[in-house]
């Protein structure tokens, strides 16, 4: 019989702990497949964030470091500067990257660190129980914006790709989504390109993936995608924000 699909060997056999319908699992697979297909598995060093993906070190079948909350881009810098020919990637949520780690990610981009960041924007803090993130939308109810997020009181939604695009050192920035097969294929292409660029020694690459958190959004996985299209998409449009490598 012809084998049509095998799970990538860049993931371990450990079952994911994520909630049903959470997009972390899909994103893990796309990252792992990209690493394996590019032949980078034995050079890869990954960083697990503080957030729902805190166990990523148990899922990615490569050398891994767990990190302090938000510091991954600095930690990755340390690894990359010590071993410049390795492939170093961070995997970060929007609390991790956009809030507490905002300084680290900006300066990694400013320095043009040759690392790859996979940024999961689910507009909320998942792990700690649904508090507001910098990416939380105006009017969105979270456990710390129980009456809906108010810009003047709680801040306005933060656009990470747009912000990082201002930095000369950022090489490739794209925002992708996972609603259907076509979008998943596109997301995979972007992630793979971000690793390819690193392998070629190019500058800082970040792929922002619009993720879902059905648990804390309080809806079903399918409703979550519908909510995302309706509410997140206008604030966080998909597309390439920077690609110094050319074909846009």
């Amino acid at each position: 019989m012809e084998k049509l699909f095998t799970k990538t060997t860049a993931l371990t056999d450990k079952p994911f702990h994520y909630c049903p319908g959470c997009t972390h699992g899909i994103i893990h697979r796309l990252v792992a497949e990209s690493i394996e297909e590019l032949g980078l598995k034995d050079k890869a060093i990954g960083l697990a964030p503080v957030g729902c993906a805190v166990f990523a070190n148990e899922y990615f079948n490569v050398d891994m470091q767990t990190t302090s909350h938000g510091r991954s881009p600095a930690i990755a810098t340390g690894i990359k500067r010590a071993l410049p020919d390795r492939i170093v990637f961070t995997y970060q949520g929007d609390g991790d990257l956009a809030s507490i780690g905002c300084g680290e990610v900006n300066h990694a981009a400013v320095r043009g660190e040759k690392i790859t960041t996979i940024f999961i924007n689910n507009a909320i803090y998942g792990m700690t129980g649904g508090q507001a993130a910098p990416t939380t939308l105006l009017g969105q109810k979270t456990t710390t914006t129980p009456y809906g997020k108010d810009g003047d009181a709680n801040g306005y939604p933060m656009k990470v790709c747009e912000m990082l695009a201002a930095h000369e050192g950022a090489y490739y920035l794209e925002r992708v989504a996972l609603w259907d097969t076509a979008h998943i294929i596109k997301a995979k292409k972007a992630i793979k390109k971000a690793f390819q660029y690193q392998a070629e020694g190019k500058g800082y690459c970040l792929i922002e993936v619009l993720g879902t958190c059905p648990t804390n959004w309080g809806c079903s996985p399918l409703e979550a995608f519908e909510w995302q299209k309706e509410n997140m998409l206008p604030m966080y449009p998909l597309g390439v924000f920077k690609d110094k490598g050319g074909e846009e």
Binding site: R71, I75, G78, I79, R81
Partner: peptide, 16 residues
């Protein structure tokens, strides 16, 4: 960019 970053980089590099 900060001592937070310095020590985080030391952690990353030390881990290699």
């Amino acid at each position: 960019e900060s001592e937070l970053a310095s020590i985080s980089m030391l952690y990353g590099a030390g881990g290699t």
